[in-house]
Amino acid sequence: MTALLTLNNVHVHFNTAAGLVRAVNGVSLDLGAGETLGLVGESGCGKSTLGKAIMRLVPVSTGEIRVEGTDIAQLQGSALTAMRRKVQMIFQDPYGSLNPRSTVGRSVAQPLVLAGWKPEAVAERVDTLLGWVGLPTDAKQRYPHEFSGGQRQRIGIARALALNPRLIVCDEPVSALDVSVRAQVINLLEDLKAEFGVSYLFISHDLSVVEHIADRVAVMYLGTIVEIGSRDRIWRQPQHPYTKALLAAAPIADPKLARTRTRTVLQGELPSPLEPPAGCPFHSRCPIAQARCKTERPVLRATGDSAQAACHFI
């Protein structure tokens, strides 16, 4: 089976006034058709930048991004436009991701119009799409400010689905939503996946949401993947000390479970990506770091069936 999305040693570097920021620093991963890959990490770890790089919203410095075998990392013009139909994105901010001066119908129709659909076909498709995400068709004539956050996120999902993409990059799609509405959107995403076989790259800082929705999980720290594996593997037998710390820190909505588990609180905070530590990026906060970690950067190694971690001491 060829993977739907293959990242090969992807780097995204930004030149800023303060110096070179290595936001994404050598990421490789595969995502199969119909799979949901969760991408977790704390703010500044590069997970959103990686999502944007896949969408080609930020320039890729080096590395390959293959969608169904074609490297799109440096594509331009019409070849890029053709590829964009296969990969779509759902954004974090339901208030910012829709043009406030466009009707909902116009926003949802946008990808279709750009793809050269005929007006009648566009109108029909928009009705279908709004139906799929559970919005009334009279929503078409209305403006985004007339809708709640959850409804707007549905509009964003309808827009992303318009051209039957193979992959949807979800950048923190439920972080801005209230608990009850968040569950609605997560369920909708799962229903759509079951119906259309679409794959998700699900970027989130919320471990419990990722645990619920993802088949596999990749953990990022300072621009690199420190551990990747199946959901159960990551939750039951985390190998990397950062993954362990992240799981220990995540609050659990069950007071009895919360009291019984041992809780090692990770000290310190994320180092600045302007001056990433030499060697293992995590060594400055790692409870098991040794001299070797300060000089030698660990690579991802297999730690079991389809699981990999980047640590010298596994």
Binding site: S148, G150, Q151, V179, S180, V181, R182, A183, Q184, I186, N187, E190, L207, S208, V209, E211, H212, W235, L247, A250, I252, A253, D254, L257
Partner: peptide
């Protein structure tokens, strides 16, 4: 609210219980 909040480590529910409407 409780049904809508996923609990990691617990048996995975097929769907989250959602509260309709807003």
């Amino acid at each position: 609210l409780i049904g809508a909040t996923p609990v990691p480590g617990a048996v995975r529910a097929e769907r989250l219980a959602d509260i309709p409407g807003m």
